[in-house]
Nucleic acid binder design. Structure first.
Length: 808
RNA sequence: GCCGGCGUAGUCCAAUUUGGCAGGAGACAACUCCCUUAAGAGGAGUCCAGUGCGGGUUCGAAUCCCGCCGCCGGCACCA
């Protein structure tokens, strides 16, 4: 009797299970259970309004990995939320007159729904939304704590300004001179802003001990921090007692070749020391530099420019007067913003000296001899020449000698400089966390008392897109009284960088409603630190660095009991479309909706994981989606076929099943989703031609293996096959090495590396027996005719290679 | 310029960790045949590279080493 199997209609079964799972609370994670807790976190999205293909790629594979861990016996926390502050919402308000809060709320509602369609096993009871006052009040609380500790400070510095977004940016948000968000060329501005002192943790951030993070991310962070060892020295300025110029160098051994000094245009001493005759020229130069786009100014290709200040410094080591120049090839934001220029041994100084006819002197010689003319700077190490008492020393020793001498004279000593700058957190935008500071004419910058938090972002605001931050025009917000003296005062109208929000959100998920602190520590102790974190590699030196910093700062405030927020990190590559990054402005964003409708969420999930290695990303091309859909349809048919009549087991089928268990288990641990899917396809190909109990059991095992990948289909089939409870509550199939082991192997027989014969042999055959078997083969005998055997190499269960030479 | 990573059938990829049969693990596309349908589809099979190029190590190299070429990231006047 033929059993009639209905067609696989994903839309029906997916809707059915979405409802049932929601009702039964299948995805809710208890804080305590009989299983060990496991915190699996994936970077939360910005609520742009649409879950696109890139989101699927970021979320579907980790969801499968988290589901896998559940079946492996862990109590897995897999939360989701929204990084809900940010400039897009504000721009929507300006362009379309929708309030950012309304726009964001609408988008989140839509995206939650899309997440659920994807079948993501999210415990929504723990959702975190960063734009709610109950969340951002803890941003403010942390700010005040950091302020008390000196880890938050207000400083006047040259900062990155994005003219399009009309706000300052942190260094990490400037990519190749352009705004990370909108790609606009960034300019420098001198401004007083709030900073978080991430540089205090520079050395600790370089340590990755105990962290299972990809090499690539560690290298990116290490380079970004840019630790550099050297000495810091000071040269006195002629006629300006007490205004010595401090500078950093990694090559103190070249100090006898320092024939001039250079200050960055923003250096505070420039105005002070410039000779009256040069004043106009210097001012003009500084002004020009100030107005230059950052990218142009820092381009190494551009010809160097500068002006003489007319002032002189004294090179303590040579005793010479050396001119002080101003040039924009010296960066105000690195080291002390000043250098000793050694044109003989530095390419940049050499080019500058050539152009302005400054003295170029050789003080390091590769061969120990003095040379009169240098055609190019010599960058390497060597022996010191024309270096007074140090002459004849090797660079290596000279470095120490100079450092010691400087220390003795009290003008400097060993020093370490970092490329990393403090994190600028102020933003001149509305849709963010208000900085909890009040400016009083008498008391200065006064922190808002803890009991008056949160400082709530006013809702009633006009969005014109002109005249700076909308907050500055809201009198009800700005006008306040000083918490200290009670006099009239103004609130700080800047808001915090949204990366502040995301630097600690992982602590909030454990109990997002908790109102006695940023984290419910009793529950936090059961979950933290995060055991597995996933997300895009583009955050390697943004979010991931800030998040590590914040953990260390909170630890030092006594709020955390660990050093690192996430122990293991894995990233996904980027999905591009026709070789270009997907973005709204390019108008090439690919949406999943049509595919979900046609093939179902399970197919799209599976396809996302099948496209290729997850770390590699891919160029979006849906042409292969039919293949995975066909596979699911075959599983659908196979799992509902008549039960097999009783009969003998089939060891070949059993072996295929257990090898697949091993393969999928391993691949899920290493995030090799593509090969896991391939292995399941292979198994289904085997099962289709199998019979007997091995087939029935194999199909059940396949459903379990497939459950994390295709949660809807497997749940439906599990039910139809009379499975008890949810397939997602089942234990992961156990691997049986004995069943996976082959009883027979194919031995390849090579003669001089060329394959001549294949022999079926029992597995585990001894070396001697394998050799005998090979030599007994007629084909081998024929091939050996006229040759002498030199040696035999046997790889157990794989091959026999017979090395010969011509019989002489 | 510097630092990473990657080059395998028409396409996406596997085998690289641990050197051991590339009659490719899995797919897409194309083609042939079979079976079907209201339309979709389904099944069986065929086609297709010798691993970017050159050298080396080895009994044996896609895999290890060296040098080129190409592509993709990141950094880039950081003293």
């Amino acid at each position: 009797m033929e059993k009639k199997i209905d067609r696989y209609t994903p839309a029906t079964i997916e809707e059915k299970w979405r409802d049932r799972w929601a009702l039964s609370g299948l995805h809710n994670t208890p804080d305590v259970s009989d299983k060990p807790n496991f915190y699996f976190l994936t970077m939360f999205p910005y609520p742009s309004g649409e879950i696109h293909i890139g989101h699927w790629y970021a979320f579907a594979p980790p969801d499968a990995a988290a589901r896998f861990l559940r079946m492996r016996g862990h109590n897995v926390l897999f939360p989701m939320g929204f990084d809900a502050f940010g400039i897009n919402a504000e721009n929507a308000a300006i362009d379309r007159g929708i309030h950012p809060a309304v726009w964001t709320e609408k988008n989140m509602a839509h995206m939650r729904d899309q997440f659920n369609r994807m079948g993501a096993a999210i415990d929504w009871r723990r959702e975190v939304v960063t734009c709610y006052p109950e969340y951002y009040r803890w941003n403010q609380w942390m700010f005040l704590k950091l302020f008390e500790k000196g880890l938050a400070y207000r400083g006047d510095a040259p900062v990155n300004w994005c003219p399009r977004d009309e706000t300052v940016l942190a260094n990490e948000q400037v990519i190749a001179g352009r705004c990370e968000r909108c790609d606009t060329l960034v300019v420098r501005r001198q401004m007083t802003q709030w900073f978080y002192k991430i540089t205090q943790y520079a050395d600790e951030l370089l340590k990755f001990e105990g962290l299972d993070w990809p090499e690539r991310v560690r290298v990116l962070q290490t380079n970004w921090i840019g630790r550099s060892e050297g000495v810091e020295l000071a040269f006195a300025v002629e006629g300006h007692v007490g205004d010595a110029i401090r500078f950093f160098t990694t090559r103190p051994d070249t100090i006898y070749g320092a024939t001039f000094m250079v200050l960055a245009p923003e250096h505070p001493l420039v105005a002070k020391i410039t000779a009256p005759a040069k004043q106009a020229e210097v001012e003009r130069y500084v002004e020009t530099a100030r107005n230059m786009a950052e990218i142009e100014r820092t381009s190494a290709e551009r010809e160097k420019t500068g002006v003489d200040t007319g002032a002189f410094a004294r090179n303590v080591f040579t005793g010479e007067r050396i001119p002080i120049w101003v040039a924009d090839y010296v960066l105000a934001t690195y080291g002390t913003g000043a250098i000793m220029a050694v044109p003989g041994h530095d390419e940049r100084d050499f080019a500058f000296a050539k152009k302005y006819r400054l003295e170029i002197r050789e003080v390091i010689s590769p061969d120990g001899k003095e040379h009169d003319r240098l055609d190019a700077p010599y960058i390497g190490e060597g022996s010191m020449v024309r270096s007074g008492p140090c002459s004849g020393m090797q660079s290596e020793n000279g470095k120490k000698a100079v450092a010691e001498e400087a220390k003795k004279r009290g003008i400097g000593g060993p020093s370490v400089t970092y490329r990393l700058r403090d994190w600028l957190i102020s933003r001149q935008r509305y849709w963010g966390t208000p900085i909890p500071i009040v400016h009083c004419e008498r008391c200065g910058a006064v922190p808002v008392p803890y009991d008056r938090l949160p400082v709530v972002l006013p809702r009633d605001v006009e969005f014109t897109g002109r005249g700076g931050s909308p907050l500055t025009h809201v009198a009800a917000f700005v006008d306040t009284t000083c918490p200290k003296c009670g006099g009239p005062a103004r609130r700080d109208t800047d808001t915090m960088d949204t990366f502040v929000d995301s630097s600690w959100y992982m602590y909030r998920y454990v109990d997002p409603k908790y109102d006695k602190g940023f984290m419910n520590k009793d529950l936090g102790k059961k979950w933290l630190p995060v055991q597995q974190y996933t997300g895009g590699v583009e955050h390697a030196i943004l979010h991931l660095l800030y998040m590590r910093f914040m953990a260390k700062a909170l630890r030092d405030l006594g709020e955390l009991w660990f050093d690192e927020p996430a122990l293991r990190f894995r990233y996904q590559g980027t999905i591009v479309f026709k070789g270009r990054k997907m973005s709204k402005s390019r108008g090439n964003v690919q949406t999943p909706d049509a595919y979900v409708e046609k093939y179902g969420a399970d197919t799209l999930r599976l396809f996302m994981m099948f496209m290729g290695p997850w770390v590699d990303g891919a160029d979006w091309d849906a042409s292969g989606i039919e293949g995975v859909h066909r596979f699911l349809r075959r599983v659908w048919e196979m799992a509902q076929a008549e039960a097999q009549p009783p009969g003998p087991r089939d060891p070949d089928v059993d072996r295929a099943v257990h090898r697949t268990i091993a393969k999928v288990t391993e691949d899920l641990q290493t995030y090799s989703f593509n090969t896991a899917v391939a292995a399941m396809m292979e198994l289904s190909n085997v099962l289709q031609h199998a019979t007997g109990p091995s087939r029935d059991e194999g199909v059940s095992t396949l459903l379990l293996l497939l459950a994390p990948f295709a949660p809807y289909l497997t749940e439906e089939l599990w039910e139809r096959r009379g499975g008890r409870g949810s397939v997602h509550r089942q234990s992961w199939p156990a691997f049986d090495a004995a069943m996976a082991a082959a009883k027979e192997v194919t031995l390849v027989v090579q003669i001089d590396g060329k394959v001549r014969e294949r022999i079926i042999a029992p597995a585990g055959i001894s070396t001697a027996a394998a050799e005998d078997l090979a030599l007994a083969s007629p084909k081998v005998k024929a091939a050996l005719d006229g040759r002498v055997i030199e040696r035999k190499i046997v790889v157990p269960d794989r091959l026999v290679n017979i090395v010969t030479k011509q019989r002489s």
